[in-house]
Each structure stands twice: as structure tokens, then as C-alpha cells.
């Protein structure tokens, strides 16, 4: 097991180097000019040239790249062109907010999605199952943007039960977590339902029932345990994408996370901030995937990594 972890961690280096190179080249060829974005209106050619030189944008590509990689190896993701703050600090300041939101969304989605899925498999075809299936489809079909605004309108503006946006205390998590988790509820419930249905047909379930175990024991302890593998896959993938790509939810709910930071950086052509964010988020994504793989082994003893 430890060898597996070490190998996977070692593979991180070429993966991140690849990400770094592709990002660097893409940003280099992309249109737009960070200096133009920095100066606002009313600039002059001399100021633009001076800033370009100060930011080393006139250096040849290989030198810029070398300079950047050198910094990354020393753990320095550079300084934002716009804010003049170290990018590592900016990311570390915002990541806890993203983690809170992703965690809450995942928890919400797991509890609801898995419960609905188990119920659907246990009592297929009932009206509750049908309604749950329909709601799951809605969850997949409605865009995050629309769901978020409707939730704000209903629960914050009309009912005034919840704050519209912001992050002052845990109550502020409720609406964005629901918005972000909607899609996962849909996937998780469908995935759980399908996997459970398959498992509930197995011989060992029949045996468990024959032993005289209670229905809930059969479904939860014997059935669900064996249906967990695909569910863990969905949880891992969705959690990874929530940690790296909840830009829309963060924007609608004024949530001060990494997603908005990336968006602002792209908007301002803040090259080091974009590169640093992508590198950081790639690292997070790869680590979440690794954790998911390790969870497989915990969930299913047949999976072994040696």
C-alpha cells in the first residue's frame, strides 16, 4: 500500500510539470495583455513599455518559463501582477472557503442522494421513487446559475429565512451548498439506486433474508456496503470538481473562494495568478483522486494495491 502511495506521489511531479507547461504556453498564445488590463484607461506607450519591462514580459519565452519554474521549485508561485501580493498567500487565504463550500455541498448531496437512491432500490416503482427520479432529472437539467438565483429569490428575498449571499457564518453555507450539491444529488441517487438494485438481486442477499435478518439490516448492512464502490467514485470525482470549479456558485453567492480568484485573474490577464491557481488546483484534484483510490481499498477488501 505505501509503495502504491509513493508511486502515485512521484507521478505528481511529471503531471504537474505537464500542467505547468501547457498552461504557460496557452497563456502565452492567448490574446489580451496583462499590462493593458493593469493600467486602466488613459495609459501612454511609455508607461506600457516600462511596466512590460518591470514584469519581464519582454524576456524571451524560454527565459520567462525558466524563471517561473525556478520559482515554483522553490515553492514560490510568484507575485500577482495586479495586487502585488504573493499568489501562495492569496490561494491559501481563499482555499478554506472553497473547502467549506465543497464539503458542505458534498455532505448535503451524499445524505440526500444516497438516501433517495437506497429508498428507490428498496421500493422501486412507488410514487416516492418516481418523484425522486423526476427531481433527480431536474437537478441535472437546471443550470446552477438559475437554481442559485431562484433559491436566493425564494429563501432570502421573499421568505427572508436565509441571507442572500456572503460567508459570515455557517448559515450562509446553506443556499450555496444546496445549489452546488444539486447535480451530485441527482447523480448519486441514480448511481446508488442502480448499484443497489443489482446487489439486491444477489444470492447473498437472498441468504441474508433467509437467515431472518430484518429488512433494514439486509438493505443497509449487506446491500449498501456492496453497492458503495460506484458511489465512492461519484463522490470522489464530484468532490474534486467542487474544489476546483465552483466558479458560478461562488459568483452568485459572493463566496470568497478560489473559483472567483481564478475568474478575476483570467479577467485581468494576471498571468502568474492564473498559472499558480491552475497548478494549485491540479494538485488538489490529483490528491483527491488518490484519496478516492485509497478509499476503494477500504470499502472493498477485494481491491488491493500491491
Amino acid at each position: 500500500m505505501s509503495r502504491f502511495i509513493l508511486t502515485r506521489l512521484a507521478l505528481l511531479v511529471p503531471t504537474l510539470l505537464g500542467v505547468l507547461m501547457v498552461t504557460f504556453l496557452l497563456l502565452y498564445v492567448a490574446p489580451g495583455d496583462p499590462v493593458q488590463a493593469m493600467v486602466g484607461e488613459r495609459a501612454d506607450a511609455e508607461t506600457l513599455a516600462r511596466l512590460r519591462a518591470e514584469l519581464r514580459l519582454d524576456d524571451p519565452l524560454y527565459r520567462q518559463f525558466g524563471h517561473y519554474v525556478g520559482g515554483v521549485i522553490r515553492g514560490d508561485l510568484g507575485t500577482s501582477y495586479i495586487t502585488r501580493r504573493p499568489i501562495v498567500n492569496d490561494l491559501l487565504e481563499r482555499f478554506p472557503a472553497t473547502l467549506r463550500l465543497a464539503g458542505a455541498a458534498m455532505l448535503f448531496a451524499a445524505v440526500i442522494g444516497i438516501s433517495v437512491g437506497i429508498y428507490g432500490a428498496w421500493r422501486p416503482g412507488t410514487w416516492t421513487d418516481r418523484v425522486a427520479t423526476f427531481v433527480a432529472y431536474l437537478g441535472i437539467s437546471f443550470p446552477v446559475y438559475w437554481v442559485g438565483l431562484i433559491l436566493i429569490l425564494v429563501f432570502a428575498v421573499h421568505l427572508r429565512w436565509l441571507p442572500p449571499s456572503g460567508s459570515a457564518n455557517p448559515v450562509y453555507l446553506i443556499l450555496p451548498a444546496i445549489t452546488l450539491g444539486m447535480r451530485s444529488i441527482a447523480f448519486l441517487s441514480r448511481m446508488t439506486r442502480a448499484a443497489m438494485q443489482e446487489v439486491l438481486q444477489s444470492d447473498f442477499i437472498r441468504t441474508a433474508r433467509a437467515k431472518g435478518l430484518s429488512q433494514s439490516r439486509v438493505v443497509l448492512s449487506h446491500g449498501f456496503r456492496n453497492a458503495l464502490l460506484p458511489v465512492v467514485t461519484v463522490l470522489g470525482l464530484d468532490f474534486g470538481s467542487y474544489l476546483t470549479g465552483s466558479i458560478l456558485t461562488e459568483t452568485i453567492f459572493s463566496w470568497p473562494g478560489v473559483g472567483r480568484y481564478v475568474l478575476t485573474a483570467i479577467d485581468k490577464r494576471d498571468l502568474p495568478a492564473i498559472q499558480g491557481s491552475i497548478l494549485f488546483l491540479s494538485l488538489v484534484f490529483v490528491l483527491v483522486n488518490l484519496l478516492t483510490d485509497l478509499l476503494y481499498a477500504r470499502v472493498d477488501p477485494r481491491v488491493a494495491y500491491d
Binding site: L149, V157, R160, P164, S165, I252, F253, S254, P256
Partner: peptide, 18 residues
């Protein structure tokens, strides 16, 4: 001074009295 990027959220914050 809150940082609220989305205009419709800004309007909702106002309508909610925030």
C-alpha cells in the same frame, strides 16, 4: 463594503434589506 460580483445578487441583497 461587501464584494458582490453578480448584479442580480446585489439587487437581492438590497431587497432583503442587507
Amino acid at each position: 463594503i461587501r464584494i458582490i460580483p453578480e448584479p442580480l445578487t446585489q439587487a437581492a441583497e438590497y431587497e432583503a434589506g442587507q
